[in-house]
Amino acid sequence: MANHVLLNNVEHKNLKVIQDFSLSPEASQMCVAAFPAEARHAQAHYPLVFAKDGDGKYQMVALLGLEQGENLFLDNHRWRASYRPLVIERGPFLIGRSTTDGQEKLSIYVDMNDPRVVNEESNHCVDVFLPHGGNSEYIDNIANVLSTLHESQATHAEFVKLLEANKLIESFVVDIELDGSGTSRLSGFYTINEDVLKSLHSDALGELHQKGFLSTIYMMLASMSQLRTLVTLKKERA
Rank of each mutant, 00 (worst) to 15 (best):
D20V: 11
D75R: 13
L149H: 02
V110W: 02
S223N: 05
R116N: 11
H45W: 13
K211G: 04
Q19D: 11
E164L: 08
S215P: 07
A154T: 12
L72F: 02
K16W: 01
P115S: 03
L230C: 02
E164C: 04
S199G: 09
T155E: 15
P85F: 02
P25N: 03
H41Q: 14
A157F: 10
G91D: 00
V128E: 06
R90P: 08
F73N: 00
E151Q: 15
S223E: 11
Q19A: 08
R237N: 05
A62I: 02
Y218D: 07
H124W: 14
N71E: 05
G188C: 04
N113D: 15
Q153E: 14
N71F: 00
N8T: 08
M224L: 15
K13F: 09
R97L: 14
K52G: 05
L6Q: 11
T229C: 11
A2L: 08
I142D: 06
S24D: 10
H201D: 15
Q29Y: 11
K161H: 14
P36K: 02
V118P: 01
L6D: 01
A33L: 11
S184G: 08
P36F: 01
L23D: 03
A238F: 12
S24L: 12
D111L: 03
E67D: 10
Q103N: 09
E137I: 09
A157G: 05
P47C: 03
